[in-house]
């Protein structure tokens, strides 16, 4: 058995890694390798297994699964904050938010985007991987115009589009859940599998809510979501400077040491600085057209 030739096959296999059809190619390649005697059966098997493990990542979750993760993350948010049962406000948030979502790079989700106001004076907002987006009355109060509220909702859409929630799930958990799935995918699920999967599901929900509610995403993620917000606002004809205007109001209304954005987000000042540096937004605030002002006041004026 020639050592060099075995390396050649292994090298070819390595070169093929990273291609979309890597598993299929690897399967064929290892079969060829084993049959020609270049690899032992055990070696072939181990290459196959490790390729499968490597190719199992967050991307392997279907949108349907992200939707179910989102529902439970949302239920936890609603355990901390109660919903604002105001049909006028919620209808307006959905009209505005769903329109903005259509202008994002991720306009379609398994169950679509849905928005809900929260009955709290905290300055806070949350977006689940399933497209459930929540905004507190306290944050709506930081918005003086429809453009500013659009900036807030578009920032949350940014977190969904960039899958920041899903990225908060521990890698080991992702692998574990997908391994259970891969083992059992061919046959129907037994109750034992449901219990194992529910354990991973619960873990994933905790990973996401701990990050989202308690610790906050990284500063980089927040700046990225701001950048997406600016893109969406521009695409649809809103004034992107409204995001800066909103952040200025937020800076004045935010209570230091609060358990809301004060804890989970970079300071409004540093977000403004980042926006000026990287998005080149002019500070000069332009008044929105009268029609927009009017409908904004009509929909949320009683909260301000």
């Amino acid at each position: 058995m020639n050592k060099l030739s075995r390396y050649a096959i292994l090298l070819t296999l390595a070169a093929l890694t990273g291609c979309a059809a890597v598993e299929t190619v690897t399967t064929i390649a290892t079969d060829v390798g084993v049959q020609s005697g270049a690899l032992t059966k055990a070696q072939g098997e181990s290459i196959r297994k490790s390729t499968q493990a490597v190719s199992r990542s967050m991307e392997d979750f279907t949108q349907e699964q992200e939707y179910y993760i989102g529902r439970s993350v949302g239920a936890i948010v609603l355990g901390k904050y109660s919903a604002l049962s105001d049909a006028k406000v919620n209808a307006y948030l959905n009209l505005l938010g769903q329109t903005l979502a259509m202008a994002s790079d991720m306009p379609e989700l398994f169950g679509g985007y849905h928005f809900l106001a929260l009955n709290s004076d905290d300055i806070n907002a949350f977006a689940t991987p399933g497209g459930h987006i929540f905004v507190t009355r306290g944050l709506i109060r930081c918005c003086r115009t429809e453009d500013a509220l659009a900036a807030v909702l578009a920032h949350e859409i940014g977190h969904v589009q960039l899958r920041h929630g899903m990225k908060a799930i521990e890698k080991g958990r992702v692998t574990e859940a997908l391994t259970i799935l891969a083992q059992e995918s061919a046959k129907s699920f037994g109750s034992e599998d449901v219990i194992r999967l529910t354990r991973e599901f619960g873990g994933a929900i905790s990973d996401i809510t701990n990050t989202m509610i308690k610790n906050g995403y990284s500063r980089a993620y927040e700046y990225q979501a701001d950048a997406v917000s600016v893109t969406i606002l521009k695409r649809i004809g809103y004034n992107p400077a409204a995001l800066i205007d909103m952040l200025n109001v937020m800076a004045r209304q935010m209570k230091p040491g609060g358990n809301d954005f004060a804890r989970t987000h970079p300071s409004p000042q540093s977000r403004i600085a980042e926006l000026k540096d990287n998005s080149g937004i002019a500070l000069t605030s332009i008044e929105p057209p009268a029609v927009r002002k009017e409908r904004f006041t009509k929909a949320v004026g009683h909260l301000l």
Binding site: Q65, L181, T198, G202
Partner: peptide
């Protein structure tokens, strides 16, 4: 329908009875 689905959500709810999905 495999993986995190209605069935898993139902099981999760059973383990977390305090969670309310009405508004979701």
């Amino acid at each position: 329908g495999k993986g995190f689905n209605e069935e898993v959500e139902a099981q999760y709810k059973k383990n977390n009875k305090n969670l309310d999905y009405t508004w979701i």
